[in-house]
Simulated assay, not measured.
Amino acid sequence: MKSPLDCAALNAAMEDVHRAGMPGLFAEVRDGDQVWRGAAGVADVATGRPVTADMRHRVGSITKTFTAAAVLQQVESGRIGLDTPIGRYLPKLVPGERGDAITVRMLINHTSGLAEYLPYAYPSLRAFPALADTGPQSLDDHRFTRFDPTELIEMGVAAPAVGAPGGAPGVYSNTNYLLLGALLEQVTGTTAERYITRNVIERAGLRDTGFPAGPYVDGPHSQLYESWFGMIDPPRDYSVYDMSWVGPSASLISTVKDLNRFFGLLLAGEIVSPSSLAQMRRTVPVVSQEGKTIRYGLGLHPMEGPGPGTFWGHGGTVWGGGALAMTRADGRRQLSVAVNLQRWNRLDSSGKPQPHPIDDALATLFRVAMYG
């Protein structure tokens, strides 16, 4: 059994991340009935306003776990077949042979072979992930752009495939989750966001989690500072941003408390059935957006630390913000953390991100939070 919570060590680890260059971060760690919440640094570098552990935050691709859970609820009801071709449901969006070959499961676990639409929606990121050849101009150009999800899906489907349907390794792509949003709308008769709100967020009793109605974060929150690998210097605040560019793939706003509650209930079989949860934990190799091969299930992936036990969860980033939520397989130990700076690593001459003191400080925080 892991150590009980060491509050002094957690506070020190948080401060070390701040000292390493993170403007602000906040977290909640749980061990059974024991709860620690902490914060370090500032929510606004101009005013010095401090971050607090109860702030609402854009949690990026952690949204995918919520969307996957919603789809699995519809699988349980018999309205969606996990191994049914997506072309049966959305023949106009994924036509022809690919629509017949790509299953719902392949969308959820990123083995569809569909390309990422992001470089096509954001022209100055066209070389993404060849980062040395990109620039941040598109981030400003699209701060208030209202994207149409169908147009984004069409960009991803029309782009050259990144693999064969069901092939290994898969390639992480937001196109998959926009299609899952369209699928939910098709079978439920309501928007994916509304369905997820009613059947996942409200079912879990999450009071501070929801999809944004516009470009603003309601309630107490931090500014979100994007560095884009040192090309934006000093980092610029993107906390005001229209999130239609990711929709049910990565637009949720939540708190570290709500994230721990959600993953705790999910892994206890209270959001989807135990059999659906078992499907979520069946993993395949997938190449992440950072170019690393990870094991990925259905909207969940395992994280192995330097100690015993497997943690399940998801991470997420948006322009300027990031979050990570992980829960030990037995549900007892949990960490959710939010940070207000992204892409802090500068690039070498080949375009590879270089190590930064923040990386080591975060690794230490995760180790202390997971293992005491």
Rank of each mutant, 00 (worst) to 15 (best):
W36I: 01
R30V: 00
N260K: 14
M1L: 07
E202I: 07
E226V: 04
V157E: 04
T293R: 15
G87S: 10
D330H: 11
D16R: 15
I102P: 02
M55T: 00
G219D: 06
L266W: 05
F262G: 01
H18S: 11
S251I: 03
T191L: 06
F263T: 02
N199Q: 14
T67R: 13
D258E: 09
T188V: 06
G99K: 12
A338P: 04
H356E: 00
T103V: 11
M231A: 11
L114P: 06
V29Q: 06
I271W: 09
T47R: 14
E116I: 03
N109C: 11
R198L: 13
L183P: 04
D33S: 14
G32V: 04
E270Y: 14
S138M: 01
V29M: 08
V35H: 11
L324D: 06
A27E: 02
K64N: 03
Q34V: 09
T197R: 15
A127F: 06
I86F: 05
A325M: 12
A132G: 15
L82F: 08
C7G: 13
P215S: 12
G38F: 07
L265P: 00
R367P: 04
P91C: 07
V17I: 04
G60I: 00
S173I: 01
A213G: 13
A329F: 10
L347A: 12
T111W: 01
S249E: 08
P285E: 02
P355E: 05
P91Q: 09
F311C: 02
A182R: 14
A132I: 09
W228K: 07
D360W: 11
P169E: 03
T103G: 08
R333F: 06
L72E: 01
N11W: 05
L90D: 03
D31V: 05
M155K: 15
M1P: 14
L152A: 04
S227M: 07
Q137Y: 06
H314V: 01
G322A: 10
L10V: 01
A192G: 05
I253E: 00
L152E: 03
R332W: 05
T255F: 07
I271R: 12
L114H: 06
Y296A: 01
L72Y: 03
T52L: 11
W245L: 11
V200R: 12
L125I: 00
A46K: 15
T327A: 08
E15C: 10
A250I: 06
T145I: 04
D83H: 13
T111R: 05
H301E: 05
T364N: 14
S275V: 05
G189Q: 10
T197Q: 15
G87R: 10
P274E: 07
T175D: 01
L267Y: 10
M280R: 13
W344H: 13
D360C: 08
P355R: 11
D148W: 09
F26C: 04
S138R: 07
L324I: 09
A363C: 07
Y225R: 11
R333C: 02
W319T: 11
E151K: 15
V59C: 10
L335F: 05
D360P: 08
M303L: 13
G87D: 02
R105Y: 01
T310M: 14
F311M: 04
Q73L: 11
A70H: 09
A161S: 14
A101F: 03
G81V: 07
S276Y: 03
T111M: 02
I108G: 02
V51A: 06
